[in-house]
Nucleic acid binder design. Sequence first.
DNA 1: CTGTTAGCGCATTCAG
DNA 2: CTGAATGCGCTAACAG
Lengths: 334, 334
Amino acid sequence: MTRKVGRIRDVAREAGLSTATISRVMNGAGNVSPETRKRVLDACSKLNYLPHPAARALSTAKTRTIAAIIPTIEHSIYAKYIAAIEQVLADRGYSLVLAISGADEESELQDARKLLGMGAQAFILSGGAHSPDLVALLGERGVPFVFTSIWDADSDAPIVGYDNGALAARAVAYLAGKGHRDVAVLHGPIAESDRTSARRSGAMEAAGDAMNLRFIETSLDVEGGRRAVETLFAERRDATAILCFSDILALGGYFALTHLGLSAPDDVSIMGFDNLDWSASIVPGLTTIDLPARLMGANVGAQLVDHLEEGAPIVSTELDGAIVERGSVAALIA
Amino acid sequence: MTRKVGRIRDVAREAGLSTATISRVMNGAGNVSPETRKRVLDACSKLNYLPHPAARALSTAKTRTIAAIIPTIEHSIYAKYIAAIEQVLADRGYSLVLAISGADEESELQDARKLLGMGAQAFILSGGAHSPDLVALLGERGVPFVFTSIWDADSDAPIVGYDNGALAARAVAYLAGKGHRDVAVLHGPIAESDRTSARRSGAMEAAGDAMNLRFIETSLDVEGGRRAVETLFAERRDATAILCFSDILALGGYFALTHLGLSAPDDVSIMGFDNLDWSASIVPGLTTIDLPARLMGANVGAQLVDHLEEGAPIVSTELDGAIVERGSVAALIA
DNA sequence: CTGTTAGCGCATTCAG
DNA sequence: CTGAATGCGCTAACAG
């Protein structure tokens, strides 16, 4: 088992310098003469030297690694968000370790333990429903964490996200403004997501007595949306609009209509939630709520790095969504 | 700066034992008496002890971390694949560090350096186009790596994937069998993916002189598919079938047809590639090539862990795709 | 500007 | 079955 790569002392010997000097140039410390630096660099490339990560981490107590635990990556809103996080972290020389918990608090806790044991210096969590043990674990160890994809002004834990309830309320108000009174609201499994229930509550509040909302829970995928809309129309057809708590569901709705020989927005209006990449490209363009997934990822990532590097405080920040009007919602003529 | 958590020697003191014994129980070594083990465990939970990852890694030269570098995560075929990898790794107590290179060899190399410096013990790479420096870097350090999403029987490097050319050829043959002679082939940027060019070559070969293939490069998203099909039909309409090298493009094609007042498969047949989750749910169901993304992820993950843990050899394995017949391709009546 | 020295926290011989 | 001693590779004072 011969060594495959040089260690710092080999480089030191090769360059005729001390390990401290090698360390200095490897870490970009300024106090090294140009010639010395060059000598070191030459020796490094000659020996194909790269600092041993664990040794470095042991000395500095820094791994430059941040963990994100998400319920799933197979929903593109999470993919966008993760991509944004990875980008900021990479720009700052940090790495992203990813765990997918399947929206289960217990496995999320397990994941966190594993990631902690792997050297994660900070955690990005999704939603607000977590095992108390998780929060305790992180708290005791002084490992910073932030919740995302939700907003709660009263939370004592740092949050970077958007107010799902308020956004859903805005969607309902928008539909109301277009004259819709009877709307079917499609959403994924309530039990799996506090974001979904927040949206539901927000929608209910906004509707009040003036509107007639009909909530339909289905699986959070195209098939779920399709089935829900087909069922809806098979039973009776009192809804003039369908509000989907995910564009994914709305896409399924489009095909259900196609299948039924109907179309949006003439026969029924459809509104989404997410503003996924393709929602502008489908026909008709999907009117939806733009969620700042990318911005959210960039924000948490940057805040966490700043915090780790310079001790900057992590400030909870509410990001705003926005209604994107396209062609799938029509005004109802009274 | 007071210590937030106990170290191994605190646990040793608390339990009235040596650090060696603590280490033994933490690592599940068998040679510890039950009572001693219990004493240790109690002390651990009392002090909220968790081994220091860097110290452990320094001692064992193991981080239990595997890196994956992918071109993008915003294409669900990658999301599926990553999800599968994460799942196996998590089951085996490993963590996944993710880097997104944007299909650029240079930034992929940078990413690899960073991940190496973070402690990644093995690499999962996408495609076969990589900087020679990357391969050299990994080779010199004895860090195992495997290429995925491609197949090349002659490669000396380990590969787990599928033969894009052969699969594309199969798709073309299928279309030929249905009587199609003029087919438009939609694909993403050739420069960004050797998988795309492999599919293109495979399709050309399969077509030979018997068929008239017309390749159209567009952006790899719904919008790209939509635009391409709209343009195609605006110019002239000689194609009886459209073969899309991604279901994503096919989805765009569906909407282009809707927009043009046409529909599949009556006016034109459409065939995809990927078999994404929703491809069965759209109307008509998309006939496509099922890519074993999930299986591929599980396979590489497992092989790499086995290799790291038990020195098992990494064996290149070709995974098979399959044509999934649904309703979007019609037989041409001569 | 550069070298010396002392740990970082743990796993691991080797004794007993 | 348990303890004492050693070193993993590097960074960070502290000297010079």
